[in-house]
Design a protein around this nucleic acid. Structure first.
Length: 486
RNA sequence: GGCGCCUUCGUCUAGUGGUUAGGACACUGGGUUUUCAUCCCAGUAAUCACGGGUUCGAAUCCCGUAGGCGCUACCA
């Protein structure tokens, strides 16, 4: 049987990193088993619907190279892949449930439900629907329907049953059906809830393996029950519930609120998609050799569809550690060829004022940047005249800085062009000796005069890119204005 | 509150009855380097949540407790 996995993101306006995390495992499993990876859009919540939001998800997946085999755009044998376009299908299956007596009409108002909840909470009872409408007669239902009363369809959960869920990571888990609420399956607006749609679609789309976040574990018994109600027990997919990624302080799920959940953030910061994927897998899985840097193919190798766990990952919820991601991203940058890095930087810095200087700068910055955006911080003094700050000069422990700068200026003017590295170095080492200051301080002073910064790529190479003329001009302006900088 | 899951250095993890409890990030110190970074070396850091068992022996097995997270919507 063909292995088919899927992600079912809801278009909320941004691509969540958790979606990518989940998609990565679904994708790898499908690839490993030579099956199919499917994207289905769960746009059943009209209140939260955001126009154009699904494109955000698609482009994020593409950025990470997690290309689906079937999706709403390219279609597939089980189209449509957008739930809002499958309403008649859900309706049909709800009717089936109604006929079989596994679901019922509920005409309770939101107000009544709210009051019910409040009183249950007051009595320290679990907040659940009281099955009020379950006792309605066929005539009453018909009358309400004829009067166009709004209604939802609820699932009739059987009493006192043990519902067994098998998860490939956790094992067997038992749930008491008395503690499961009569879940709404079809909302008043005719849209299905997640629970109905997910079961119907996964069945019709022949999904064999569900890899999703652990937040879904408590609702899995409802899904199992639905498979049973429909008579699809033989088609229950294999569940793998992934640990939820927590935010940095461990106090909750990684969320939009702390700013580190959106794929867009990482793209803007200049993180590399392959490094992010590496990090995302590394927080729950270890390479058998113990190495930290590996690509998706290596994760794929570790997946075994026939082993009980499928993939041997931890079941603890990890915290998100941006520092480690940054380190990892730096590792990827360093092992990249200069040509590749140049290309990435050119793509990233589309608005760069002087794109021709990116390539020559790459070898100078490659070991100094952790993400692509660091490039700007490190090199913008080349395209832009720096703003000087006396505090920066004060960090260099040299007396009579103005005199020294004057000397530097004179030497630069005397030096034969084009400047040569050895000559440059010898000239200023000699000058340092003559003025009785440390060579290191001498070069630091030149660095600050030229860049306004204490930290830059290698001095001489930077100056070469800057040009002799511009260098002299900058030093001259420093000599002139020193110490009037604020 | 109820239900479920989880609990090894600050963080991510290795570890499946006998290890000086290993690695990575972060941090600290040293070396290389005209700055920074890279690279190399070293170090700090977990009485394996706690309490009971079982066993010659437990981070590893069992029971209990506590804490954390998740779910508890006509959201997914």
């Amino acid at each position: 049987m063909e292995v088919r996995t899927r992600i079912a993101p809801s278009p909320t306006g941004y691509a969540h990193l958790g979606t990518i995390y989940q998609a990565m495992f679904d994708f790898c499993l499908a690839k490993k088993a030579k099956g199919k990876f499917i994207v289905r859009i769960e746009d059943t919540d009209r209140a939260r619907f955001v126009e154009g939001a699904e494109e955000v998800v698609f482009s994020a997946l593409e950025w990470f190279g997690l290309t689906p085999d079937e999706d709403p755009i390219k279609g597939g044998p089980f189209a449509p892949y957008r739930q809002s376009e499958r309403l008649d299908i859900y309706r049909k299956y709800v009717n089936l449930l109604l006929e079989k007596g596994h679901a019922y009409h509920c005409f309770c108002t939101k107000e009544r439900l709210a009051e019910l909840r409040i009183s249950q909470e007051k009595d320290k009872l679990p907040p659940m629907y009281d099955k009020c409408c379950l006792g309605l007669s066929a005539d009453q239902i018909k009358e309400n329907l004829d009067n166009n009363m709004p209604y939802v369809i609820r699932m009739k959960i059987p009493k006192s049953e043990v519902i067994k869920v098998h998860d490939s990571l956790v094992g067997d888990i038992e749930f008491d059906s008395n503690l499961i609420d009569d879940q709404v399956l079809l909302k008043a607006d005719g849209f299905p809830t997640y629970h109905l749609a997910v079961v119907v679609d996964d069945y019709l789309m022949k999904i064999t393996n569900i890899i999703r976040g652990k937040e879904w574990l408590p609702s899995t018994p409802k899904h199992i029950l639905l498979y049973r109600f429909f008579g699809w027990e033989d088609s229950i997919p294999k569940y793998t519930h992934l640990p939820v990624i927590l935010n940095a302080d461990g106090k909750g799920k990684l969320s939009k609120r702390d700013g580190h959940a959106s794929v867009d953030f990482y793209k803007k910061e200049g993180f590399l998609p392959e490094a992010i994927l590496n990090y995302l897998s590394n927080i729950v899985w270890n390479h058998p050799d113990g190495k930290e840097i590996y690509d998706l193919k290596e994760l794929e190798k570790a997946i075994d569809i026939n082993s009980p766990k499928i993939i041997n990952i931890t079941s603890q919820a990890p915290r998100f550690d941006l520092k480690k991601l940054e380190w990892m991203n730096g590792e990827y940058i360093r092992k990249m060829s200069d040509e590749d890095l140049t290309k990435r930087l050119e793509d990233f810095l589309v608005d760069h004022p002087a794109p021709e200087i990116i390539a020559p700068l790459v070898p100078l910055v490659k070991e100094r940047i952790k993400k692509l955006s660091d490039f700007i911080l490190l090199t913008n003094f080349i395209t832009e005249a720096p703003e000087y700050d006396m505090e920066v000069f004060k960090r260099i422990k040299v007396e009579n800085q103005k005199d020294v700068l004057q000397n530097i200026y004179e030497e630069l003017q005397k030096m034969e062009k084009p400047w040569k590295s050895e000559v440059f170095e010898k000239t200023f080492k000699d000058l340092a000796q003559k003025l009785d200051i440390k060579a290191g301080d001498m070069f630091q002073l030149i660095r600050v005069a030229v860049s306004g910064q204490l930290v830059t790529p290698p001095l001489f190479e930077s100056i070469q890119i800057l040009g002799e003329e511009e260098t002299i001009k900058r030093v001259a302006s420093v000599v002139q204005k020193y110490p009037l900088f604020d």
